[in-house]
């Protein structure tokens, strides 16, 4: 079976949906982070596939940027998380309500 761009699109869509659902329904913030990474990687797969398909390297370049930004975001996010955990000793997102009115 030949792997067509449609396959990649499907895979990426699946990953994306898994990620979105994960973000929306999970309570552990680390899992939420991982779900966000899933979303980003879904986008990456899509970009790589289309770059290949269109024979344009810009898409691959973009992926590198996304990975870099994702790494930075993860670092900052985990930093905040660590600081939060030290104060509250929890990673449950329902208890993160200090910004709430």
């Amino acid at each position: 079976m030949e792997i067509t761009p449609a396959h990649y699109a499907l895979l990426s869509a699946a990953l994306f949906i898994i990620g979105v659902v994960g973000v929306l329904v999970r309570r552990n913030i680390i899992i939420i982070f991982m779900s966000i990474e899933l979303i980003l990687n879904a986008v990456n797969i899509n970009l790589v596939a289309n770059a290949r398909h269109l024979e344009n390297l810009v898409g691959q370049v973009f992926v590198v940027f996304v990975i870099a930004v994702a790494a930075a975001e993860a670092a900052v996010g985990l930093g905040i998380l660590l600081a939060f955990f030290r104060n509250k000793e929890t990673v449950n997102i329902d208890e993160m309500n200090v910004m709430r009115w």
Binding site: L24, N97, M99, W101
Partner: peptide, 14 residues
């Protein structure tokens, strides 16, 4: 409306 829970906002966005 401002629950402070990101997920609520994300659902709303969705």
């Amino acid at each position: 409306v401002q629950t402070g829970l990101i997920q609520n906002y994300a659902v709303a966005t969705l």
